[in-house]
Design a protein around this nucleic acid. Structure first.
Lengths: 334, 334
DNA sequence: GCGGTCACGGAAAAGGTTTGCCGATTGCGA
DNA sequence: TCGCAATCGGCAAACCTTTTCCGTGACCGC
């Protein structure tokens, strides 16, 4: 099974040229007769020659690889980002080193060292929460882009989705379908994204001279259970609520179940908007859920693009905010 | 930002020794005075020296990297496998190249070529379905292990979870809590895993002199909707069913909703078992769902271990079947 | 004092590729 | 037929590390 690796020396010998010439032929460099080029290429093809990237990288100083580190473990949010990044980088002939940081700074630093010793051309850092995180390290010899999470150093390049816009889109849509008494059920207040979504939503409400109905944003854990509990509380305190903006699709699904079981119709009595566009949630929800897509895959692609630019010598700085997208389904448009 | 990379030459010069000596000092090889070793190590530390893995790999013929290719896109099932593999490989100082095959054989072959040119020491192939797939290629110069999916070539090493056991565990548990009239709602029949789970379940039923209640296994798409639909059909045809084995947690959740809405209590009237142990499903299910965990992360770890063995010169052949684990929750033990 | 042994560390090659430089060949015009 | 220019292609260095082989010096025993 382990066939000896064929090197450019073998190709050169078989084609009757020198190694240098073979290299030029295969890379389209130098001054060579077309016939020579073709011959070398044909021989390389026949022998199944694959240039050794290690040797090439050693010489050129570029490895055409990048590292992808998660601060926390790869989860529901970092995975789309990761796939988007892999997508964009793969198209640019880059390979991606996968590093699962597991919320462990020691592990993260270990991976960092490994990546540097492998001479990656750049690094993407991703993580679950938008909250600013400490920079990976200072004075790295390669560019770094933070995706989904944000570096505390404002000079670093971070790419995040526009959480405030997500809130604005959701509430603007609810207002546009005639809702007046809008509630907000969401996640823990110590998530930056939670605060930003709420603020965005409130800014649109304020323009309409309104605010969330009493008792204001309901904060709890990210679970369907909390969605159900919060709905029960809300229906007791404000039975005439006519729309709920939920901080996640998961919450929204719990809310939908609780509403249905309390006899409310969706969207006739109460309209519902989530955030994430998480397929299993939005599809399984009855009725299918209107939501705001944070476009995480695009975010990953964008981060990879910025990293490629930085590698080419055009670094970006500061936080880049990516647009979100409202996806309308039956939970707001019966 | 881009500080010039410090090489072993710099370290050697700063420590007043030759490169060869520096190398020996840093790698604990050769015959050197302890004092010399310490001095070199201290200098390397001070300069922030990181051995260039490319150069090392070029010489040793090993890159200490492996490729991880999905045939289909990374999804809910391949991701735990991937993380488990990354886990096991990272512990062994191996780095992982991520390759998202996207169900596209062309893409897959492209990645294969890239990985070979990067001189990976081995390759793990993963994919969504257990159904045998064509081998990646014949006569590769590096070992390959298939994880979760299975190669059609019986000489190849594949690691899969024991789908039949999953079925046996589920039904044995239902029998052990006194259920007699067990139904099966599951996915499309053209999934090998679906057939194997059903066969495993039936073998246990047969030992007890029984079979699934009429109308036998209900096949449909992998969605909560189908779970609800199938439950409605089942309750019409066999109202006295007292347990349902579901081919996935997602199906089980739909089944649970439909049962509750038809007035059945879980588990008092109907007990419920799923497959996957998918956190968001089993926790959100009311009541929390008993299920069979396919231990995909362990499967990934195991595949990585086998790959490491193969790289060390001890290849495995054939299909390795990994155990599954029953997780008991309230849906069977009220 | 001398030969031998041992400890230490240096020199150099190897690994595969790219590339700058230079020599060689060919063809054409004078 | 000679010379020049243009076109081709070979040689060797460079990338960085590891490792083998060998040289040097010290020390010991005779």
């Amino acid at each position: 099974m382990v066939t000896a690796r064929v090197t450019i020396t073998d190709v050169a010998a078989a084609a009757g040229v020198s190694v240098g010439t073979a290299s030029k032929a295969l890379n389209g460099r130098g001054q060579l007769r077309q016939e020579t080029r073709d011959r070398v290429v044909a021989v390389a093809e026949r022998l199944g020659f694959q240039a050794n990237s290690l040797a090439r990288g050693l010489l050129s100083g570029r490895s055409f690889t990048v590292g992808l580190i998660t601060s926390d473990s790869f989860g529901r949010f970092s995975i789309p980002v990761m796939l988007g990044a892999e997508d964009a980088l793969g198209a640019g002939q880059m390979s991606v080193f996968l590093c699962d940081g597991r919320e462990d700074p020691i592990r993260e630093q270990h991976y960092l060292r490994t990546l540097l010793s492998r001479r990656v051309d750049g690094i993407i850092v991703t993580g679950r929460r938008a909250d600013p995180r400490p920079p990976l390290a200072s004075d790295l010899p390669v560019p770094v882009v933070y995706a989904l999470c944000q570096s505390r150093d404002p000079e670093d390049c971070s790419v995040v989705s526009d959480e405030a816009e997500a809130g604005r889109l959701a509430v603007a849509h609810l207002l546009s379908v005639g809702r007046q008494r809008i509630a907000h059920i969401t996640g823990p207040e110590d998530f930056l994204a939670v605060r930003e979504r709420a603020a965005g939503a409130r800014s649109v409400l304020a323009e309409a001279g309104a605010d969330f109905v009493e008792p204001g944003p309901l904060h709890g854990e990210w679970s369907e259970r909390w969605g159900r509990q919060a709905t029960a509380m809300l229906l007791r305190s404000t039975p005439d609520v006519d729309a709920i903006f939920c901080g996640s699709d998961q919450l929204a699904r719990g809310v939908a179940d609780a509403l249905r079981e309390s006899g409310r119709r969706i969207p006739e009595d109460v309209a519902l908007v989530g955030v994430d566009n998480w397929d299993v949630m939005v599809q399984a929800c009855r009725p299918p859920l209107t939501t705001v897509d944070l476009e995480l895959r695009e975010l990953g692609r964008s981060a990879a693009g910025l990293l490629l630019d930085a590698i080419e010598g055009n670094p970006s700085h500061g936080t880049i905010v990516r647009p979100t997208r409202l996806v309308i389904r039956e939970s707001t448009s019966g």
